[in-house]
Amino acid sequence: MSVHLPRLGEDPGSPFPPPSSALERPNGLLAFGGDLTPARLLNAYALGIFPWFSDGQPILWWSPDPRMVFETQGVQLSSRFQRGLRNCTWVARADTAFDAVVRACATVPRRGQEGTWITAGMQDAYRELHRMGHAHSVEVFDGDVLAGGIYGVALGRMFFGESMFSARSGGSKVALAALAHALHLWGWPLIDAQVENEHLERLGARRLRRDQFIGRLRDLVRSTQAPPGSWTTRFGTLAASELASGARPRPDE
């Protein structure tokens, strides 16, 4: 049985179909086409929609049900990992190496995955959002070496995580925990983790029904508490050792 998938209009401001009309299989596929202009991307995120596609495919837009999210006070690091952080000399900063984080997320090999969905066009699109103050990265440094990082999009008091990477063991976990630590201090309650993933679940992500997610999202993106702009000064420098007691512990595996 064929399924009709809506095609987006050429105008970046053209409307998206309602997320409730997304397919069940594949879970959350909503529409195709359009472009990756800032206006289109920001409109998508505000509605609980994100792009996800590979080279050779049209731009595909998704809004899965359920949605995977982190409560910013709910990131879980194992007790063993937190013990290791106590003497760790790594530090986390924000928006000091955005391009490097995006490039690493696109190129670092991942178990069971060939290629990348972070295409050259996607990288260009998020660099432009970063230039506009809407996309941000958290970088973890071991001295001058980038050990890990995470990047995503901020609207109002909502952060939409896009991807993270580790160049050294545990680098992505520290980046996620540092991001959550800062957002919690700022009064931002949620990090969108998009699709179900066992690794993220072990780190404390949980499922929200799509309607619940969009209901919370609606109020958060309307917040004017945090206008677009660089996070470098606001985030400061966070020692990884400070995260040893800041994340909620879980039993060692």
Rank of each mutant, 00 (worst) to 15 (best):
S2Y: 10
S2H: 11
H4L: 11
L5R: 01
L5S: 06
P6R: 06
G9K: 05
D11C: 05
P12A: 01
P17V: 04
P19R: 04
A22C: 04
L30H: 04
D35W: 04
D35N: 03
R40E: 02
L41H: 05
F53N: 14
Q57G: 02
P58H: 02
I59M: 12
W61F: 09
W62E: 00
F70N: 03
Q73D: 15
V75S: 14
L77R: 06
L77F: 10
F81N: 02
G84E: 12
N87M: 05
W90C: 11
A92D: 01
A92M: 07
R93D: 11
A94L: 07
A97D: 14
A104D: 15
A106Q: 08
P109A: 05
R110F: 13
G112N: 14
Q113T: 08
G115I: 08
T119Q: 08
G121D: 15
G121R: 11
M122H: 04
R127Y: 05
L129H: 11
R131P: 12
R131A: 15
A135F: 08
E139F: 03
V140L: 04
D142Y: 05
G152W: 08
S163E: 10
S163T: 03
S163I: 01
R168K: 13
G171W: 05
S172K: 08
V174M: 12
V174T: 14
L179P: 08
H184S: 10
I191R: 02
A193M: 13
E198L: 07
H199L: 12
R202I: 03
G204F: 06
Q212K: 09
G215M: 04
R216D: 11
D219L: 06
V221T: 08
R222E: 14
S223Q: 03
Q225H: 14
P228C: 11
W231D: 07
F235I: 13
A239T: 13
R248E: 15
R248D: 09
E253N: 11
